[in-house]
Simulated scan of single mutants.
Amino acid sequence: MISRRSLLAAASIMPLASLGLGGVVPAHAQQKQVKLQLAWLYNAASAGEIVALKKGYFTEKGLDVEILPGGPNSNTVQEALSGVAQIATTYAPEIMYGANQGLPIKTFGAAFQKAPLTFYSLGEANIKTVADWKGKRIGAGQGATAQVKAVLDHSGLKFEDITFIQAQIPGLLQDQVDVVASWPTNVAQNAPVLQHAGGYNTQSIWDNGLQFQSNYYIARTDLIESDSDMLAKFLEACDKGWAYAADNPEEAIDMVASMSSAIEKDKELASLKVIVADFIYTDETREHGFANISKDRWNATLQTYARIGEIKPELTADDVFDDRVLVAAQRTKR
């Protein structure tokens, strides 16, 4: 969970001053400088934002954007609060815990329409539903215990009904756990399970009572209130970047690779194709547009987390989400 002390200290620092005007501007005009803090390292999950940078889509909107990599020790809520970055990407629990502490941060859009987190088991275990987890060894990262509790709660089970073990895919293959959490977007990591001769079964959090979205764009509430126009232009550029990445995945991965020589392009390309097909574009984006967020889903998620004792019961979607940027932005329906 996010450190209350560090975040409350960070919350007292105002973000960098806004400069310039939005829109397409001539080369001599001053552009608005914006830092985007990613939740994770440069990879396929940030392809749309990187394409928007490399193709000049941010520049077209009058924005001079710098994209900062995240990583396992990154705390993007703190970095947005402190002004290290004006915009950051993060995950639903971090936003909820921030709101639970009264921190002035909200989301204004979500690149991923569904959080990918999924639980895998080998076919011979015959684990076809979450109800089948009772008495089983369930593997996940320590930070995923709340998600495990929420999924169990949806099926009428308690955390005490399982044995929780910190594990990843190798733990499943080595019979250390019966079920393990992973991300279908990580095609290379999951390959041994997907190719298992006895088949495999899955239960996603999305299909089991926890309809998180993911890769939420967040900003300080005062920035959303004072400069929603800039955030709308940012979102429009990301929209264009993700559309280009979807239509030109090989080129998009080349752009990602230009930011980090450590990635393996063939593996990231496979991941990008899954990300685009299953998580960026869905029925929701076809109806409502890129980066759509549902208040009803936020309310349901908050109620679930309150029920399992993770947050205060009085929190609502309005405490975590401001829709004015989505309303203002011209977004692609795809």
Rank of each mutant, 00 (worst) to 15 (best):
F234L: 15
I253H: 05
V177G: 01
A329L: 02
I2Q: 09
A17R: 14
W40Y: 07
L53H: 02
S12T: 12
L38E: 09
K54V: 00
G139P: 03
M14F: 10
D278A: 12
A317H: 13
D175F: 01
N73R: 10
W242P: 12
V65M: 14
Q330T: 02
T316C: 06
H288N: 15
I105T: 07
P184M: 10
G56N: 11
Q101F: 10
L53P: 00
G23S: 08
L272K: 08
P313K: 14
H288A: 09
P72N: 02
A17K: 12
P15S: 04
N100R: 10
Q213D: 09
I280A: 06
S271Y: 04
G22I: 12
F58L: 03
G23N: 06
A146S: 08
Q189M: 06
A9P: 02
A317C: 04
N73H: 12
T129F: 08
E284F: 07
A306N: 12
A125P: 10
A150G: 15
E66P: 04
Q213A: 13
K55P: 03
C238S: 08
M255F: 11
R286T: 12
W206N: 04
G198R: 02
R4I: 08
T282R: 01
Y217V: 10
Q86S: 03
P249H: 12
S18K: 05
L326S: 03
P72E: 01
A167Q: 06
L41F: 07
K240I: 05
Y91H: 13
I2T: 08
A11W: 04
N208L: 00
E264F: 11
G309L: 01
L16Y: 13
F212L: 13
E236D: 10
W242S: 07
L315Y: 12
G171C: 04
A9N: 10
D254V: 04
A243I: 10
D64K: 14
T89M: 07
A146V: 10
I13Y: 07
D278S: 06
R324A: 11
E284W: 13
H154T: 08
N186H: 13
K134M: 09
A99D: 08
G199C: 05
I280T: 06
G143D: 15
G71Y: 00
N186W: 12
V187M: 04
K265H: 09
W298Q: 09
D296T: 06
G83V: 06
K295S: 06
F119P: 00
N248S: 11
L231K: 07
K267I: 14
A99N: 08
T316I: 08
Y200L: 01
G48W: 07
Q113V: 06
L7P: 09
H154N: 14
V177F: 00
Q101T: 06
F108M: 09
